[in-house]
Every structure is written in C-alpha cells, then in structure tokens.
Simulated assay, not measured.
Amino acid sequence: MGLFDFFSKEKKETLDKGLEKTKTNIFDKISRVIVGKSKVDEEVLDELEEILISSDVGVETTVKIIRRIEARVERDKYTNVQELDQILREEVAELLSENNSHDIKASGIPYSYETEHLPKPYVLLVVGVNGVGKTTTIGKLAHQFHKRGKKVVLGAADTFRAAAVDQLKLWGERVGVPVIEHGMNTDPSAVAFDTVKKGMEMGADIIIIDTAGRLHTKVNLMNELGKIKRVVQKFLPEAPHEVMLVLDGSTGQNAVIQAREFTKVTEINSLTITKLDGTAKGGVVIGISDEFKIPVKYIGVGEKMDDLQVFNKMEFVDSLFKK
C-alpha cells in the first residue's frame, strides 16, 4: 500500500463525508429546479447557473460549465432533466481534466512526490494567510512523509506569530521530526537557512518551511519570500523546489482572492485547499483549479492526521455528484 492510499474504502468514505454539505447543497437546489420540468431548457440552465455560483464555483467557471451544457443540449436536441446530474458531473470532470491538475498514480502517491525522482533534499516552502490551516497542513504532510520512512525537517520561519512557532514545535513532537526555530520576532530567512543546513547535514529527504501568514503589503511579502529563497539557494541553487499555497475552502471566494494576491507576488506551483468538510462551498475547488491552472495537490476533508488527502479530480467529482 502506498502512503497516500487514496483509493482505500476508508479514504473514499472520508472524502464522501467531507464533501457531504456541498453535495447536499447542490443536489437539493437542483431537485427543486427540475420539479415539474421535462427537459433542460433556458430556465433550468439559468437556475443551475445560480446554484453553481452560490456553491462558490465562481462566475467565470460557472459560465464555462453552462455553455458546455448548452452546447450539449443543442447537439442532442432533447435532454431530459433527469439526466442533468450526470451531464453536470461529466462536464465538470472534463473541465478539470483540461486544467493543470496532476492526478495520482495507482499507488496513491502524487506524480511530483514520487520521491525516487525528487532532488534530495526536496525543499517545500509553504505560504498562506493566518487561519487557513497552513501550519496544520505542514504537520500532516510531515506525518505522512515520516510514516513512509522519509527523513523530514521542519522550519518555523513564521516568526511574526508566537503561536505559529509553538504550534509547529508541537507537530514536530507529535510526528517525531525535528523542528528548527529561533523563536518569535527573529529573521525568517535565518530560520530557513538553518533549516536547510540541518536538513542537508542529516540527509533529509524533505524539508518543509513555514512562512509568515500575513499579506500585510505586497511589497513586504514579496521581499520577505524573496530573501528566504535567496538564503536557501546558498545551499541549493535550485531550491525551493516547490512553493505551496494553502487556502481555506470554507471561505469560498475569499480563498480565490487570496490566491490572486499571492500569485501576483510570488510563483506558486501547488495548492492545498483545507476545511472542505465543514462547508457547503466545496465548489470553490473547481473554480480555483480552473482559474489558476495550478495543481491542487491536497484537500482537507477532516481533522484526523490522514484526512489531508491527495487530490484526485475524478474521485472528487465522483464524491461531489454521487447520489
């Protein structure tokens, strides 16, 4: 079994449960729309558009989906409303398949985390505003890598918030991996420097560095992340190998706004969307994937260690639209 045994019955049940609120929100509304209707017409599509937007799929992405369904209805001439659920599932799946989202292999391990092919150490820089679950995501990632037998080192470079340093230290103790920290109000780049240095000394496979969870000003954020990158590159010129943005799915369109702000000031090449289990706004995953064309690697569908799941678009669509 792979570390991310995504297709296990337990994982699938967790995913289904985590998306239950969003699924119920969509299907309950669709059911009310099609009552007394025999075919998918303009009125039904207008209602469907409102449903998708209210589920935080996003306006532009919703319009794309509706246009696809309109073309399909026009092509087939007559489409029964009872087929609407299946049509919606198929068109969302097709839209996601066109985006830059990497599916996982049968083992459950993402393509980019097939550690046999990764540089060693692999440096992962994690960014995101306070409260999105950034530090918890790092802890859960560390747990999953450590469980797979990988050497992991964490760096507490979010030095503007005391709780962030303490929280990461607790995760390190819980998981059993070292945490490099200088305390609060210290230079984040110095923490990053020492983290990479320690990771190289101990032969780490994965180095994960937490960063300040503040947008404060774009210039300061850009300068801060730029400095961290420069000091890391003194050891590893190609590092960081990945910059992951963590977003809170329960905030809906606010998550989209955060993604826009961060992508303006730094190169983001992976996304994690958390807290989907407590919201009816899970459609935001579809909109974010469509707008930014950045791989969604993980989704949070519960509070347990293993409830940070590798994102697989087909499994996601299946859970979201399964009756």
Rank of each mutant, 00 (worst) to 15 (best):
D103R: 07
V123S: 11
Y122F: 15
K105Q: 00
P121L: 00
S107H: 01
V123E: 05
H117I: 09
Y122H: 10
L118I: 08
L124S: 12
P121T: 02
P110Y: 08
V123M: 11
I109P: 09
D103S: 13
I109H: 10
L96G: 04
N100W: 06
L125I: 04
L124P: 12
P119L: 01
E116N: 11
N100R: 15
I109K: 11
A106F: 10
S101H: 13
H102G: 09
L124T: 13
L124Q: 03
G108F: 04
N100D: 14
S101A: 13
Y113R: 09
N100H: 12
H102V: 04
E114K: 07
E98V: 00
L118P: 07
E114D: 13
A106I: 15
L125E: 02
S112F: 06
H102Q: 11
K105C: 01
T115F: 15
N100K: 13
L125Y: 04
N100C: 04
L124V: 06
H102Y: 06
S101N: 04
P119W: 06
E116T: 14
I104E: 15
G108N: 02
I104A: 15
I104N: 12
S112W: 01
E98Y: 06
S97R: 14
Y111V: 05
Y111M: 07
Y122N: 15
L118N: 14
S101M: 14
L124G: 10
I109V: 08
T115G: 10
K105P: 00
Y111F: 09
K120S: 11
E116R: 13
P119G: 08
S107V: 02
K105I: 06
P110C: 02
P119S: 07
L96H: 05
S107P: 02
L96P: 04
Y122D: 14
S101K: 12
I109S: 07
E98R: 06
V123K: 11
K105A: 09
K120A: 05
A106K: 15
L118D: 10
G108I: 00
N100V: 06
H117V: 14
D103I: 03
S101R: 13
K120G: 03
L118T: 12
Y122L: 09
V123T: 12
P110F: 03
P121I: 00
E114P: 05
P119D: 04
H117T: 14
L118W: 04
V123F: 01
S107E: 11
N99L: 06
L96V: 03
A106P: 00
Y113P: 03
N99M: 05
E114M: 06
K120E: 15
N99W: 04
G108H: 02
I104T: 11
L118R: 03
I104Y: 15
S101Q: 13
E98C: 00
L118M: 10
S107A: 03
E98W: 00
N99K: 09
V123G: 12
S97Y: 01
E116M: 10
P110W: 04
P121C: 01
S112K: 11
S107T: 10
T115N: 14
L124C: 08
I109E: 12
S107N: 10
H102C: 06
L96K: 09
Y122G: 11
T115Y: 15
S97V: 04
Y122Q: 13
K120Q: 07
E114L: 07
N99E: 12
